[in-house]
Design a binder for these strands. Structure first.
Length: 555
DNA sequence: TTAGGGTTAG
C-alpha cells in the first residue's frame, strides 16, 4: 500500500484531482487498502486540490489520526483561505492534544496568520513556539519572519532573525524580500550584502535585491547586482531578467532595459508589462503604443495590468483611435468592471479631450475610488467646467469618499478660473480638517487666482508672506499673471526672484529680455540673452499635433 | 518558510 500512498501524494502535488479521486474510489473498493498512510495521502491530495469538504469528510471518518492527518487538514483550510476553520482545528490539536504539533503544524498556522495579516494571532503562535521549544527550528523561524513581515511588524521579524541560532538561504531571502515588500529598501540591500558572507543568493534573493535598487533608483548598485546575477548563473532566470528590466527602466535607462529584453529567451505578461511601463514612464509613449499593438497582434493573452499600463501611457500624445481600441479590448476581456481599468480609461479619454466618454465611464462605475473622483474632477477643472467641479466634489463628500491633495488642487484651479477667492480660502482651510497639508502647488493656485483677477500686489504679498521654500512655482505663477496684465514692475521683480532661485527658468529670461527691449535698454537685454546662452537655457518650443485617421501628425 | 509588473496633477 505504500506505493498507492506515493501515487496519491503525487496527484496532490500535480493538482490532479480527477486521478486522485479515482484512486480514492479504488481504495474504498479494495479491502485492507485504507491504511493510515493511504488515508493521509488522500486527505493531503484533497487539500492541495482545494477540495476541503472531501478532506474534512474523510478526516472525520478516520478511526486513527496522526499529526500528518491534522496538518493536511490545516493545509486544506489554508488553501481555501478558511483561516477561521484552520484556527479551530489548530486549537483542538493544541489544547486537546490528540496528536502533537510539529514543525509543519506551526509553519502552516503561521501562513494563516500571514494571510490574515493578523499580528495578534502571529504573536500568539510565536508564544506557543517558544513555550514548546521550536525556536531553533529553521523552517519555523523562517515562517515567523515572513508572517511578521506580512503583518507589517518589521521589528518582530528582525528580532526573530537576530535570535535565530541557525539560518539558511530561505531565512536570508525572507529577510531581504520582507524588507523590500515593507518599503525598507535600504535595509533590504544591507541584508543582501551581509548575507553574501554566509550563503549564496538564489534567483529570488536577486529579484528582491534588484527590486530594492529599482525603487531607490540606485543604478550603480543595480548594475553591480546585475554582474553578480551573471556570475552566479541566475542572470537568465525570467524573474531576475524582469527585475533587471524594471530596475534599469525605473532608473531611467530604458536602453539597458531593452538590452536585457533582447536577450530574454521567453517573455511573459509580467516582463512585457515591465517593458510597456518602461516606455510609458520614460516618455517613449509612441513605443509603448507600438509594443502594445505588437502584443495584441501576436495573440498574447492581454491581462488587466497590461491594459492599465498602456492606458497610463496616454499623456502628451493621446491617439484617440487606439484609445477606443483599448477600451474595446478591456470590454471584451471583461476588465471594464475593474476600478483600476475604469480609472485608466477615464484618464485616457480625458487626455484625448473626450470629456463625455470619460464621464460615461465614471457614471457607470459601481465602485468609485478616490482616484476615480479625482480624475473626473480634474477633467472638469481642466476643461473649465467649474460648476461641475464643485458639484462633483459635493457628491464625493456625500458618498463618503475622503478628498485628497489632488482633489483640492482641482478645486483651487476651478476657483482660480472663476475668480472665487473666498471659496478658495475656504477650501484651503478645509484641507486642514482632512489632515492634508497644503503643498506649494496649492499655494500656486492662490497666486494664480489673485494674479489672473489682476490683484498683482496681493499675489506678490501672498508669495512673500508665505513661509514655504523654495517658492519657484509661486514666482512663475505671478510672472504669468504679470504677462497677462502687462505689469512690468511686479513682473520684473518676479523674474529677478526667479533668475536668482532657478537660473534655468526660460520664462524669466524671456520676460526680462522683452521688457528691456521695450524700454530700449539694449545693453541689459544683451546681458540677459548672454546669460541665457551661458546657462544653456532654451525656451520651450510649442508643438501642436493633430490626429488624422490612425496617424498623428506634428504641426 | 523565500521571487518579477499596473491607474490620478504639474
Amino acid at each position: 500500500m505504500r506505493n498507492l500512498a506515493t501515487v496519491i501524494s503525487q496527484c496532490g502535488r500535480d493538482a490532479n484531482y480527477r486521478l486522485g479521486a479515482t484512486l480514492h474510489a479504488v481504495t474504498i473498493k479494495c479491502a485492507n487498502s485504507s491504511t493510515l498512510d493511504v488515508l493521509n495521502a488522500i486527505i493531503c491530495m484533497y487539500s492541495k486540490c482545494g477540495q476541503l469538504d472531501s478532506a474534512v469528510k474523510l478526516f472525520e471518518r478516520m478511526p486513527i489520526r496522526d499529526s500528518f492527518s491534522w496538518n493536511s487538514l490545516l493545509l486544506g483550510c489554508l488553501v481555501k483561505r478558511e483561516h477561521g476553520f484552520a484556527f479551530g482545528y489548530f486549537k483542538e490539536m493544541y489544547i486537546l492534544k490528540p496528536c502533537p504539533c510539529d514543525s509543519t503544524t506551526l509553519t502552516t498556522i503561521l501562513s494563516c496568520c500571514a494571510e490574515m495579516e493578523r499580528l495578534s494571532s502571529c504573536a500568539m503562535v510565536h508564544a506557543l513556539i517558544l513555550k514548546n521549544g521550536f525556536q531553533s527550528d529553521v523552517p519555523v523561524g523562517n515562517a515567523m519572519i515572513s508572517s511578521y513581515f506580512q503583518c507589517g511588524c518589521l521589528v518582530s521579524a528582525r528580532k526573530v532573525f537576530d535570535t535565530m541560532s541557525d539560518r539558511n538561504l530561505i531565512t536570508w531571502t525572507a529577510m531581504v524580500s520582507g524588507m523590500v515588500q515593507s518599503q525598507s529598501f535600504n535595509e533590504g540591500l544591507v541584508l543582501f550584502k551581509d548575507m553574501r558572507s554566509y550563503v549564496k543568493a538564489n534567483y529570488m534573493t536577486y529579484s528582491s535585491a534588484l527590486t530594492a535598487c529599482s525603487r531607490l533608483k540606485a543604478l550603480e548598485e543595480g548594475q553591480q547586482i546585475h554582474g553578480l546575477t551573471l556570475k552566479s548563473g541566475f542572470g537568465h532566470y525570467l524573474h531576475v531578467e524582469s527585475a533587471l528590466m524594471d530596475m534599469y527602466s525605473k532608473c531611467g535607462s530604458m536602453e539597458d532595459a531593452l538590452q536585457v529584453f533582447k536577450l530574454c529567451k521567453e517573455i511573459d505578461n509580467v516582463s512585457a508589462t515591465i517593458i510597456l511601463s518602461g516606455f510609458a514612464q520614460n516618455e517613449l509613449e509612441e513605443k509603448a503604443f507600438k509594443f502594445f499593438a505588437e502584443l495584441v497582434n501576436s495573440g498574447s493573452e492581454i491581462d488587466a495590468d497590461m491594459v492599465s499600463t498602456v492606458l497610463g501611457a496616454f499623456g502628451s500624445t493621446a491617439p484617440f483611435a487606439l484609445g477606443r481600441q483599448i477600451h474595446a479590448i478591456a470590454a471584451k476581456r471583461r476588465f471594464a468592471s475593474s476600478t483600476y481599468i475604469c480609472n485608466g480609461l477615464i484618464n485616457m479619454y480625458l487626455k484625448c479631450g473626450e470629456l463625455n466618454d470619460a464621464f460615461k465611464i465614471f457614471h457607470s462605475m459601481s465602485s468609485k475610488s478616490q482616484v476615480s473622483w479625482n480624475s473626473m474632477i480634474l477633467a472638469f477643472a481642466r476643461h473649465g467646467h467649474a460648476s461641475q467641479v464643485f458639484h462633483l466634489y459635493k457628491s464625493m463628500i456625500n458618498e463618503g469618499t475622503e478628498p485628497t491633495d489632488v482633489t483640492f488642487l482641482s478645486l483651487l484651479q476651478a476657483c482660480s478660473h472663476t475668480g472665487s477667492y473666498r471659496m478658495a480660502m475656504e477650501f484651503l482651510d478645509s484641507m486642514r480638517s482632512y489632515r492634508i497639508t497644503p503643498r506649494i502647488e496649492h499655494y500656486a493656485c492662490i497666486v494664480d487666482m489673485l494674479g489672473r483677477a489682476g490683484f498683482l500686489n496681493d499675489a506678490k504679498a501672498f508669495t512673500e508672506n508665505l513661509s514655504y521654500e523654495p517658492k519657484v512655482i509661486l514666482w512663475q505663477a505671478l510672472l504669468g499673471a504679470c504677462n497677462i496684465h502687462g505689469n512690468i514692475e511686479i513682473g520684473k521683480y518676479a523674474a529677478e526672484q526667479l533668475v536668482s532661485m532657478a537660473p534655468d527658468s526660460a520664462a524669466a529670461y524671456v520676460f526680462l529680455s522683452n521688457i528691456y527691449s521695450a524700454e530700449g535698454r539694449w545693453v541689459e537685454k544683451g546681458n540677459v540673452r548672454n546669460k541665457m546662452k551661458r546657462m544653456r537655457v532654451k525656451k520651450d518650443t510649442g508643438v501642436s499635433c493633430i490626429e488624422i485617421g490612425k496617424e498623428t501628425h506634428n504641426l
